[in-house]
């Protein structure tokens, strides 16, 4: 057997071994429980659960969902919720105030929702606007990451959105982020003024499918 072949084999084993060590040591993201919304402070799931400080939301116009365990149990529980939180601030006693705030009774005006044909036209308009911004991240495609992301958001009569919530995670950060980005990029929703006189909340399932 030639020397260069033996060294080639040894090199390949070495590279392979190093790769496997890297894979097993670093397979999960350190920041996997973080979802970013452009122009806003990053959302860190574990911080929301463990350190529900109202200051976390300062400077954002986006309110976060209460812990999923209180709303609906996802069909596929997200492992990131079970991981220890990142310690960025001194531990404070949980203060229930912000959650109570989000669970406040809605303003009576908000309940006056549109219906019938007008609602259907509005749904179609919003759906198409978000569709134009749909994106399947390349890395997620390559890795065959699939899943359903459920988001809800409130559309103001001026087309801007608020209260963007991630109700159900796909279990993959990139897909969750892509779903939130699609909704954010679609605003301001043109033409909703025709249908909305007050804010209306919508819920959307976004399914990422890899057919290849």
């Amino acid at each position: 057997m030639k020397k260069n072949n033996i060294s080639g084999l040894a090199l390949s084993f070495l590279i392979h071994g190093i790769l496997l060590i890297i894979l097993f040591l670093n397979f999960d993201f350190q920041d996997k429980n973080q979802v970013s919304i452009p122009g806003q402070k990053d959302i860190i799931f574990s911080e929301l659960l463990e350190n529900n400080n109202p200051d976390t939301n300062q400077g954002t116009n986006i309110k976060f969902a209460p812990p999923p365990s209180l709303l609906e149990r996802p069909k596929n529980p997200i492992s990131r919720l079970d991981t220890p939180p990142l310690i960025k601030q001194p531990i404070q006693k949980p203060r229930p105030t912000p959650i109570i705030k989000t669970l406040e009774k809605p303003h009576p005006e908000e309940i006056k929702a549109i219906s019938g044909t007008q609602l259907n036209q509005l749904i179609s308009l919003i759906y198409q606007a978000i569709s134009r911004h749909k994106n399947y991240p390349e890395m997620a495609q390559e890795l065959n990451q699939t899943g359903i992301v459920t988001v809800s958001f409130k559309i103001q009569p001026n087309g801007e959105i608020s209260n963007l919530l991630l109700l159900h995670s796909s279990a993959y950060h990139d897909l969750d982020q892509a779903a939130l980005n699609a909704v954010l990029a679609a605003q301001p929703f043109q033409g909703v003024q025709k249908y909305l006189t007050q804010a209306q909340t919508f819920k959307l399932n976004i399914e990422f499918q890899n057919l290849s």
Partner: peptide, 23 residues
């Protein structure tokens, strides 16, 4: 009685499909 459920409107599911064989 949660606020997001009171006037929640469901949109149809949005499918995002990966282009086969893109790479």
């Amino acid at each position: 009685r949660a606020p997001y459920a009171a006037d929640l409107t469901n949109l149809p599911t949005l499918d995002i499909q990966a282009a086969p064989n893109q790479t």
